[in-house]
Design a protein around this nucleic acid. Sequence first.
RNA 1: UGUCCUGUAGUGUAAUUGGCAACACGUCUGACUCUGGAUCAGAAGAGUCUAGGUUCGACCCCUAGCAGGACAACCA
Length: 564
Amino acid sequence: MTDERIDTNGESEKPKNFLEEIIEGDIKSGKHGGRVLTRFPPEPNGYLHIGHAKSICLNFGLAQRYGGQTNLRFDDTNPVKEDVEYVDSIKEDVRWLGFNWANEVYASDYFEQLYQWAVALISKGLAYVDDQTQEQIRLSRGTVTQPGKPSPWRDRSAEENLDIFARMRAGEYPDGSKVLRAKIDMAHPNMLMRDPILYRIIHAHHHRTGDKWCIYPMYDYAHGQSDSIERITHSICTLEFDVHRPLYDWFIERLDIFPSKQYEFARLNITYTVMSKRKLLELVKEKVVMAWDDPRMPTICGLRRRGYTPEAIRTFAERVGVAKRDNVIDLSLLEFCIREDLNKRAERRMAVLNPLKVVITNYPEGQTEQLEAVNNPEDEGAGKRSVPFSRELYIEQEDFMENPPKKFFRLAPGNEVRLRYAYFITCNEVIKDNDGNIVELRCTYDPASKGGHSPDGRKVQGTMHWVSAQHAVPAEVRLFDRLFTNPDPNDVPDGEDWKTAINPESLKVITAYVEPELAKADVLDKFQFERMGYFCVDTDSTPEKMVFNRTVTLKDTWAKISSK
RNA sequence: UGUCCUGUAGUGUAAUUGGCAACACGUCUGACUCUGGAUCAGAAGAGUCUAGGUUCGACCCCUAGCAGGACAACCA
């Protein structure tokens, strides 16, 4: 493992992040009897993305590490935005990442309790019904530098408030006509403390409570109390909620309920990636991508379809660390994590992406032989397979150069290379079409080099992948690249559409020739196409027409050298 | 302009809680190799935002600046 230190006992120990320090401190001091209960609280209004994965791994990981548990709680307090479609996808994604929640709960489960607490606050003179319009409320809130002004309804009697609030619940008033607000301080330097809204009237159908309610609690009023009801010990959220913490604590103190505590960490950002739900939705709606699970999307389902594994994502979440300062992680770290995982696990296959025909002139016409190939040099247990070889082959176009530069190790006129697991071949003749394009190579092979070894011990510099022309299976291959050309897609000049930074070459569809063994593959099976990268079978794939997605290329030293 | 949060190699995260900075990704060498993959070995790269202060000693504590971020939805 990485990031380890060797302590005096010779045991390795990972450096702790600030949340682990806090939890360990709490356990040591006996807070909550050493109990640890976290929660992952998505709003069911969109698909989960890699940023959520960081939060999921954090919440579940922390609980696991300290013998605790984690609730999956849907923060469903806004019926106009939420839908069961999202509930289902969120559950699927959390499970796929490898986590099991202790309880599946919903903020809407607590609507009655929340209502009762609101009544209690009103009775204590800590909340009131405001009849002002949305506009009036906004205006009277003041600005960050100027205090707000009290509502003319601020001093209604508790009796009157109680009565009106009950009628709000009963559905006597139209949407937007009244709200329930906490009575705190209209001059508070923290805008959120300027008599925040607790309840608003929304006559809308809720995905779980149906039409039972027409008043719905706001986030600030619902979240902390939900934590408290579940007796969450550590409520971990992202930095932008830091400002909300005083309010979070205010409700818990006034209501005198279980003291859950909120802690904030910096959300994940990745180069060449947008992470906002709004922008991701826009990409889907405007058909910039195929869907939420488009392999170019940073959504969990997109990454899954792209060929990422839960293990790689978890490792990534571990390696990006946790802290309170804003951060932007190199996309290369994510790519490193998936390569590292797939290198150990993905079986190797040969596939030619851009075919160039090769005829072995001294190989008997009509002959075919089966050659043995190792499935995964990193894993003995993966076994072997056989690959058909014949007189006519395809190799990669980029593996041949008529006038090669100095350090080009691949095929060139007069040059001998190895065909992986097959033979040494030498190129004798280059055949071109009328436009001068190379269309075929005539080569000879050394029958003694069968299997890829030369009996006389002579070395070749290059080893290339290939497929037998008559045996190869054509397949669609989708070559994905980063969705944006700008490392910071959010950095757009004023007034310009943020989507101008979209990479026009983020998807190239080609027809490749793959070795016949690949025809047995199932959807989502992952392979390394030797020397080309990691690929997985797309959900669009059928036995008649296979479709592969490129997850990530292999590290390509030659590309680096040749581009210099 | 108010309040809060945050400033450590290119990017992230550490530093036994005060003993002059480590690990990972990336970059660059080299070795090895039937993947220009993997693996292995090594290198470069920060003196910790700035200025003061406390201290024998400061990335760590204090003060003042500076920079970045968050907050003015009946969103979460």
